[in-house]
Amino acid sequence: MTRKKTAAKKHLQLDSVKKRLGKPFFESKGIAIYHGDTLELSSQLPANTFDALITDPPYCSGAPGSAVMADPSQKYCQSGKTLGRPSFGGDFRDQRSFKYWSLLWIAQAFNACKESAYGLVFTDWRQLATMTDALQAGGFCFKGLISWDKGGGARAPHKGYFRHQCEYIPWGTKGKVPRLIDRGPFAGSYSIRVSQPDKHHMTGKPTQLMQQLVQCVPPGGLTFDPFCGSGTTLVASALEGRSAIGFEVSEQYCEIAAQRVKAAQHGKPLHFQKT
């Protein structure tokens, strides 16, 4: 596909979404951010629009009761120290309500995806079976797991434990896995350490990791991230010549994501500054 045709395709896909959702919170060179609740916004998306769902939703992980209801800073930051990273909502559900909620937004994303589109959703070891069920119940054909090894810096409760140093990405497709001639096969496991200057969210994923994952999207294609947080999926898409639309319920994180996308498009990655 020529560069001119790729650009035209990019604008058509984005325009179809904007006709339904209106003006984005932020838009620049094929990347758009909408501020709002995912279930409300996703219900308005046009069908057969996205080339992939790639997202990192709240895990709602931990033991029932106090761990589920705890502020994310108490669950994901050592000693509750956020270092200036904003907290976030939606991490309070028990496992049954988490599965039902996940089914709802995955089904909406599935409807908005094209035939043969990919669905990649992050989770941890506690919610792995639950998210795998939700991915399939939402419509995607489950094809396997991608592992992300965070490295030896991952915490363990005490010396008797094996470290929980991997997180997982159940993946599937809307129908058959496409036969590609321009990219792939893609790695099924990634060993990429978390870099603090690159981490703008308490549970943020490395930009390098997301750059690898968006390779399943065709150049110029459109990715959907219904929980874009600090915008790493969008940043990776911009760096890799893909378009992306993200939803985010926190206006503060919408601002952070917008600043990161603008910096990436100018070739100057925005580094997190501790406070």
Results as ranks from 00 to 15, higher is better:
Val177Thr: 15
Phe247Pro: 00
Gln252Glu: 15
Asp71Val: 03
Gln108Thr: 02
Gly160Glu: 12
His164Gly: 13
Ser230Cys: 13
Val68Gly: 00
Cys254Ser: 04
Ile169Gln: 02
His200Arg: 10
Gly62His: 02
Phe50Ser: 07
Gly62Cys: 06
Ala156Thr: 06
Cys228Ala: 12
Pro57Ser: 08
Gln252Lys: 14
Pro226Gln: 08
Asp225Gly: 01
Phe110Met: 07
Lys10Val: 10
Phe50Asn: 06
Ser191Leu: 08
Cys77Tyr: 00
Ala238Gly: 13
Gly246Ile: 01
Lys159Ser: 13
Gln252Val: 13
Gln208Leu: 15
Gln165Ile: 02
Tyr161Gln: 05
Glu40Trp: 05
Ile181Ala: 13
Arg3Val: 14
Leu45Val: 01
Ser230Val: 08
Tyr76His: 12
Pro170Gln: 08
Asn48Lys: 12
Cys254Gly: 07
Ser147Asn: 11
Leu222His: 04
Asp15Gln: 15
Gly246Cys: 07
Ala70Thr: 01
Lys29Phe: 10
Cys216Pro: 00
Asp91Phe: 04
Pro46Asp: 06
Gly231Ala: 08
Glu251Tyr: 04
His35Lys: 14
Tyr253Ser: 09
Lys159Trp: 10
Phe25Trp: 13
Arg179Tyr: 04
Met210Glu: 08
Ser28Thr: 07
Gly246Ala: 08
Ala258Glu: 03
Lys176Phe: 10
Leu53Gln: 04
His35Gly: 07
Asp94Pro: 13
Arg155Pro: 12
Met131Arg: 09
Lys114Arg: 15
Asp182Pro: 00
Lys5Gly: 01
Ser16Thr: 12
Ser28Tyr: 09
Arg126Ser: 11
Arg126Phe: 10
Lys159Asp: 11
Ile106Lys: 03
Tyr59Ala: 03
Gln108Gly: 06
Lys199Gly: 02
Ala7Cys: 03
